[in-house]
Design a binder for these strands. Structure first.
Lengths: 112, 112
DNA sequence: GCAATACTTGGTTATTTTGCCAAATAGTAA
DNA sequence: TTACTATTTGGCAAAATAACCAAGTATTGC
């Protein structure tokens, strides 16, 4: 085996920069990786909805839904707007919509 | 609203069938949602590799890598083949490769 | 058979995630 | 002001996930 001059001979741990990049990339995937959040994304791909409506559809505590929405927002997948008492959420970009569609197709392919 | 004989009148909880469908759909996303597993998928998109090689590249315990590979296999993303002592892993289908590419693009778009 | 190698599995502990309740915040309206 | 509604936040307990080590399995070669 060739020993390259500039590489540590027995460097086992992954490069820290690479690790950080991977972590940031998984953020968006992680955000989508919960049944409730995937459902929310699917619903928001149809039209914007308030926390109340989503809570009603899903049937868990409103605080739980609020926290799920925070995760989605934090991952850059959705955005919100307050009108009066109500906070409306919608998908942030078209690429998120495409991703959902794409994943649906892959899943369909994989389970057939 | 019609009250079906077998349903509770104010059943807020989401339909169980829908929930199961969502859970199965998040399985593939969940499997991709870990830095190490995303890295493995990226590497396998280049060429098949054995557990040993992946362990060497990532630098954690081989049992940890083995368990990550199990998660990916269980989600239908990779498959393996034993040749001699060595177990080789590769992506299961071309659609998984496409998915990885697609996600990479979406992530790139979203972080710019 | 025995030893060596490549991997998987079981067990334990630490960390993260989830979901509920209660309390806090913000906007509306009397 | 007070009351009311929609949502968020804090805190806590339960569940899920991840990493390590040690032990087990399978294959090869002696």
């Amino acid at each position: 085996m060739v020993i390259l001059p500039n590489s540590k001979k027995e460097n086992k741990k992954m490069d820290n920069k690479k690790l950080l990049e991977l972590k940031s990339n998984t953020k968006i995937l992680k955000a989508m990786s919960h049944p409730t959040r995937l459902f929310i994304l699917e619903e928001l791909s149809k039209c914007e909805k308030c926390v109340c409506e989503l809570t009603e559809m899903i049937g868990v505590d409103i605080s739980t839904i609020s926290k799920h929405l925070y995760v989605l927002k934090n991952a850059g997948l959705v955005e919100n707007e307050k009108r009066g008492l109500t906070v409306y959420y919608k998908l942030k970009s078209i690429s998120v919509l495409n991703l959902i569609d794409f994943i649906r197709k892959v899943i369909k392919n994989n389970t057939e």
